[in-house]
Each structure stands twice: as structure tokens, then as C-alpha cells.
Amino acid sequence: MNAQFKRGIVELCVLSELASEDMYGYMIINNISKHLDVNENTIYPIMRRLTKEGYFTTYFQESNAGAPRKYYKITKKGFDYYLELRDAWDHFIGGVYEILNKGGKKHEDILRKFKERT
């Protein structure tokens, strides 16, 4: 997948994870890489950049596991940005499916239509 496109999507996912609760770095990475084929070196730079841009703040909290963990918390600015991105994404992906579904919703559909033509 195009790297820039992927980064945009991962950015939305990071925002979405933090929109629901504060999380520490490894947790965010794990939650996302469970569903998408991206690893730490894509996700961490995005977390860091969004923090620098004032979308997240960070704080430390003791853990049972050992050293204190660095938690990320979404700011008001971050939340507004998330809603904006989310809208744009819904709109975009909706449009993509409008186009794709015209050709048929399932593989069999698509294949049948194709066979009718040839």
C-alpha cells in the first residue's frame, strides 16, 4: 500500500484509539497491529508527531509490571481533529464503496456480470 496513504489511515486509527481512553505506547501499537499490517516504526512516529502538534499530552503512571508507563491523552484540539478526519474518511470510504458496489457486491456478482459481457 502507498506509504503516505497508509500513514493517513494509521493516524486516524491512533486518534480513534485514544478518543475512547488514555493508553500507553505499547498498548496503542498492539491494538492497531492486531488488525492492520503495520508495525511500531509506522505507528510511533505518528504518535510522536501528533503529540508535538498538541493533539495529545502525555503523563506517567506507575504500573504493576515495573517501570512507570507513559500514557497518551487526547486533547480538545486532538478530539476536534479526530472528528474532522473521521468525517472525511467516512465520506471518502462511502464514495469508494458506491463506486465498487456498482460493479456488484460480492465476488459472484462481479463475476456473473463480467461473464454476461464476454
Partner: peptide
């Protein structure tokens, strides 16, 4: 900061 963040994440991953 970046190294500290990674140290933490690597620890977590190992504990995992």
C-alpha cells in the same frame, strides 16, 4: 525521549 519511549515499549513487549 525517543530512546526512553522505546526502552519502555520493548520492556512491555518482552513482558508480553
Amino acid at each position: 525521549e525517543i530512546l526512553e519511549d522505546h526502552q519502555e515499549m520493548i520492556e512491555e513487549a518482552k513482558n508480553d
